[in-house]
């Protein structure tokens, strides 16, 4: 009897250990139809030297944060729009046809708070720096709402390869925005907030 039991257990054990390979993945079975090099392009393309915001602020603080700093020429024309239903949320965007895959554009966002410019961070990426080849965009929450409350936003743009020698109006763009806005319709807002609570 004991022998039979042992034999049975051994058989089960052998079968289990053999069947492990059945569950082994054979690799992705998703066909590569439609996937070309584009997939590779979506991998982290941030190769090469990383630009550190703190280093830039230290080196170019005078021109970045100067009271009168504003360029008369544009590298990238920037616009913005408000994002419903978020009260403070705004999207800044700009496209350029003058691009180079090896030399992307850098955009830095700042907002004036208590007389000083502080970093205005993207709500998703949690950074105020955007690095892209031809289309720049960032979504931020401004800080002041109301008819007489002005948000002084500063957008700084330059090419990555120029980072060691930025000169205003030559290879450095500084654009200032003064943005005021009111609350969305209060009835709409109340309804939205109620829905958020119950969702």
């Amino acid at each position: 009897m004991a022998k039979k039991l042992v034999f049975l257990l051994v058989m089960i054990f052998v079968l289990l250990s053999v069947s492990v390979t059945v569950f082994a993945g054979t690799g992705s079975d998703a066909p590569e139809v439609g996937f070309t090099d584009d997939k590779a392009n979506l991998e982290n393309k941030d190769s090469g030297n990383k630009v550190r915001v703190s280093d830039l602020e230290e080196k170019y603080g005078e021109v970045f944060f100067g009271e009168d700093s504003e360029s008369s020429t544009e590298i990238v024309s920037i616009n913005y729009g408000r994002v419903y239903p978020f009260e403070m949320r705004h999207e800044f965007f700009g496209q350029t046809n003058d691009y180079d895959i090896q030399n992307p554009h850098i955009m830095l966002m700042y907002i004036k708070r208590d007389g000083k410019y502080v970093r205005l961070k993207d709500v998703e990426r949690k950074t105020n720096i955007t690095e892209e080849i031809c289309y720049l965009n960032t979504v931020v929450d401004l800080e002041n709402i109301g008819q007489n409350k002005v948000n002084e936003v500063r957008v700084i743009i330059f090419r990555k390869n120029d980072v060691d020698n930025l000169v205003l109006d030559e290879n450095l763009q500084i654009t200032n925005f003064e943005i005021t806005f009111r609350r969305w319709n209060p009835v709409e807002r109340a309804f939205f907030e109620l829905k958020q609570v119950f969702n």
Binding site: D37, D38, N41, L42, N97, E132, I133, C134, Y135, L136
Partner: peptide, 22 residues
């Protein structure tokens, strides 16, 4: 799938069909 317009321009069009931008 990503339908982000910025990604389409920055990560796909510039390398596959730059003539769209140019």
């Amino acid at each position: 799938y990503s339908v982000n317009f910025a990604d389409l321009l920055n990560k796909q069009i510039v390398s596959t069909y730059p003539e769209i931008l140019e």
